[in-house]
């Protein structure tokens, strides 16, 4: 789902960098307000490594094939650390694996990082919105929602970015059909990542619940 170089016009790339800049500043400010800002860096760093590797894991969803993103998972587990983590992960993916590109780094970070922050807030509302659910189920359900919606919103942003930026020379109908097929392929992936997020969060809740307080 990474947008490579040369697909989007320059204005969109610049706007992506602008949004990324603001989101990074906001995330870092939120992190800096904590009593010990460096306390969660180990967790964030390990999950950045997981994010970096995840995009090389392909899942065939006929007719396309999609790869893991894990942005929702990062949001749920890391909170505001998710945005810098995704930005750094994407930077190394663009350089080393060749997924995405440096001109579209801002756009990609916005596309995956902002939904990750939303996923975090979805997960944080579990104690307000999920009162009727018993405790382990509540955490599991909201982790699933965070993980799958984080990816789902990212896929919608991807769809919108491509559909609204089809160059005039291209056959717009064919391109729209192709990008729609690819986006539909992300629905099963969203479920997979949601389940994965729920499993990880429930595991953390059992072994190290303080990691989820954030």
């Amino acid at each position: 789902m990474h947008i490579p170089d040369g697909i989007l016009p320059a204005q969109v790339c610049a706007a992506g960098y602008a949004v990324t800049g603001v989101a990074t500043w906001y995330s870092l400010r939120q992190i800096n307000r904590r009593p010990d800002p460096a306390a969660e860096v180990p967790k964030a760093s390990l999950l950045t490594a997981a994010f970096f590797v995840a995009s090389s894991i392909y899942i065939p969803v006929p007719p396309a094939s999609v790869h893991l993103i894990l942005n929702g998972l990062l949001g749920v587990v890391l909170g505001y650390f998710a945005f810098p983590a995704i930005l750094i992960g994407l930077f190394f993916q663009a350089l080393v694996i060749g997924h995405g590109g440096l001109t579209t780094l801002g756009v990609n970070a916005t596309m995956m990082g902002v939904p990750a922050l939303l996923a975090y807030h979805i997960f944080q509302t579990r104690n307000i919105l999920g009162k009727m659910l018993p405790e382990p189920t509540r955490t599991g359900v909201f982790a699933f929602l965070g993980g799958s919606l984080g990816l789902g919103i990212a896929a919608l942003i991807f769809l919108a970015l491509i559909v609204f930026n089809i160059p005039a020379e291209l056959n717009a109908g064919a391109e729209q059909a192709a990008v729609l097929t690819l986006s539909v392929g992300h629905i099963p992936l969203a479920i997979v990542e949601g389940v994965f997020t729920a499993m990880l969060v429930l595991f953390l809740r059992r072994v190290k619940p303080e990691l989820l307080e954030g």
Binding site: V41, P42, S45, A49, F52, V53, V96
Partner: peptide, 18 residues
Amino acid sequence: ITIGSVIWGFIGTALFFA
């Protein structure tokens, strides 16, 4: 090797702060 080095960088960062 490149990918491994990047991953080791992340793990090293984690170990340093941990």
